[in-house]
Design a protein around this nucleic acid. Structure first.
Length: 524
RNA sequence: GGUGGCGUAGCCAAGUGGUUAGGCAACUGAUUGCAAAUCAGUCACACGUCGGUUCGACUCCGACCGCCACCUCCA
């Protein structure tokens, strides 16, 4: 079966057939870089990462574009309001940075944190401020097409919703009802209360562009266009950047557009109106949206201290892998209840997976005495099949993980050796192309009984107390301690052997006695 | 008020008109010098409430209760 996704517009699951065979072009609504991205943002980005990885796993060539919204609506007042709320923003203000510098700063943090969460690099991260010209070109085309207008003397441009009857099809909203809701700002400039601005004039705004300045158009493909002279110095509307950048990098019609559920209206609805108003062609073929992430079943809030960012969680002792796993393990279309207890559970789950993999790695290097067992082969095949089938079903990761844990249980029972272990390991690593949960740097080693015997020869000279006194341990010193422990255990000196194990545990080094020898795990 | 969605055993969380989802936690047993890891088992005759349809509903329909989101440039 092919990949099936739930399309927000159609409100049902549909089979995905790419516009260009063998290729998928996807656009993800990215971060607004005026603050440290929080876990709610990352749920959306991790979903985009999962979508991209699954499509690639299914053999498609994916082009992924994620925008960086750096045209803020950062006025002097906003900056002032931010005081005391956000340490970095406050720092930026104290340093007297201009908005561009603030944007670049938080953009860097976004990239730093997403890399820690192993979110793959998108192919392009276009910045809104680098595409003001593309936006102005679209705005002019909308004016030419009769989809936009310039209110008398305003210098601004508004979208004329009356010209686009499809407005509301994505969010299933009725424009008249929206207006009746009376929450739309009353503005005499607008023809229709629900019309939204494409270009805004506001002298108090920190970021502004003069559309008629020839400098702005230097080096622009096609040169400076003929713009409506009534448009004054100002800044673009929020929605137009995604229309301009998605179409520039993915084409006028592309496969999938994603975002958080809050983007459905008005943002994505407006994107459709703008894009299709210009091209008269379908814009995004499919829309996928993640539900909100709640913390302790409530919306995140600064006051409750639940607006966690990645560093907050790391400070609390959690690793990036636990965060990645716990977000991935929940279905994107269900509201997710994020809790610290959930991270504890995620840690235990990841460790179970990793123990299985470590065991397979140990066994894979042992020379095989026989050929591949059909049982292992069918297990590996079943894992790939069931895992893939689950993700084909609108990225049903809970079911995909159930398949994975089923595999782990069977492998632990079978205890495959040699080529069998290698086969099982390959199957694990294959699904890990999507999950990316195993730690390549995790250090789990088995010191076999034979190794131990060899090490024990020199055990008498090992400075056990000195080694234990160290604050951290490298592989070599752990091996020496393991040797001393072999020696102690041979003499039934369990006080010493337990002391070595306990002291190492405090420093994060785990020792496990097995039939084959001693396994040690170094901290990550 | 309008629209969309959710309520599943201690916690998290899939799914289905009739046969064990899965994970975590806890407990018991096997294994171990003791642990850890692993295996077996228990908690699990779970599905917000009340009606209806049906041979049979957690799954379909209706009402109600509780919760969430969007309609405010929040992923």
């Amino acid at each position: 079966m092919a990949f099936r996704l739930y399309d927000t517009r159609l409100q049902k699951q549909v089979e995905f057939t790419p516009l260009h065979p063998g290729e998928a072009r996807i656009y993800n609504c990215g971060p607004t870089v005026y603050g440290i991205p929080h876990i709610g943002n990352f749920r959306s980005f991790l979903f985009a990462d999962l979508l991209r990885r699954h499509l690639e796993w299914r053999g498609l060539k994916v082009t992924q574009v994620m925008n960086i919204t750096d045209v803020g609506h950062l006025t002097e007042d906003d900056v002032a309001d931010a005081q005391g709320e956000d340490k970095l923003q406050k720092a930026a203000r104290d340093l007297g940075w201009d908005p561009f510098k603030v944007a670049r700063h938080f953009e860097e943090i976004f990239h730093r944190d997403r890399k820690r969460l192993r979110i793959k690099d998108a192919h392009v991260y276009p910045r809104a401020t680098d595409h003001i010209r593309e936006m102005l070109v679209l705005i002019q085309k909308l004016l030419d097409n009769g989809h936009a207008y310039v209110p008398e003397g305003s210098g601004e441009v508004y979208y004329d919703l009356a010209s686009f009857p499809k407005y509301g099809e994505l969010s299933h909203k009725n424009v008249d009802e929206l207006v009746a809701g009376a929450r739309v700002e009353v503005d005499e400039k607008k023809r229709n209360p629900a019309d939204f601005f494409l270009w805004k004039v506001d002298p108090g705004h920190l970021m502004q562009w003069d559309p008629h300045d020839s400098k702005l158009w230097e080096g622009f493909k096609g040169g400076q266009p003929k713009l409506d002279p009534r448009i004054k110095k100002g800044f673009p509307g929020w929605h137009i950047e995604c229309s301009a950048m998605s179409m520039k990098y993915l084409g006028e019609t592309f496969d999938i557009h994603t975002g958080g559920e809050d983007n459905i209206f008005p943002h994505h609805e407006c994107e459709i109106a703008q894009s299709e108003g210009v091209t008269n062609k379908p814009f995004a073929r499919h829309w996928m949206h993640t539900r909100y992430l709640l913390v302790d079943n409530k919306k995140m809030s600064k006051r409750a201290g639940t607006l966690f960012n990645l560093d907050d969680l790391v400070t609390k002792g959690y690793g990036e892998r636990e965060v990645r796993y716990s977000m991935l393990a929940n279905h994107y279309r269900q509201p997710m209840n994020f809790t610290l207890e959930g991270l504890d559970a995620a840690r235990a789950s990841v460790e179970r997976l990793e123990n299985c993999r470590a065991l397979l790695m140990e066994q894979a290097v042992i020379p095989a005495q026989a050929g591949i067992q059909s049982s292992v082969q069918s297990l590996a095949g079943k894992l790939k099949h069931d895992f893939g089938e689950a993700l084909d079903d609108d990225l049903n990761m809970p079911n995909a993980l159930a398949a994975l844990f089923g595999f782990v249980n069977e492998v632990n029972k079978l205890k495959p050796v040699g080529a069998d272990a290698k086969l099982a390991l390959d199957a694990l690593d294959d699904v890990n192309r999507v999950l990316d949960i195993f730690d390549a740097t995790a250090k789990s080693h088995l010191v076999t009984k034979d190794d131990g015997t060899a090490l024990v020869v020199s055990a008498g000279t090992i400075d056990v107390a000195g080694l234990l006194a160290r604050t951290s341990h490298d592989e070599e010193s752990v091996k020496l301690l393991v040797a001393a422990r072999f020696d102690a255990r041979a003499k039934k000196d369990f006080a010493t052997s337990d002391r070595i194990r306990d002291e190492l545990k405090v420093r994060g080094v785990i020792l496990e006695d097995t039939k084959d020898g001693v396994r040690f795990k170094l901290p990550q």
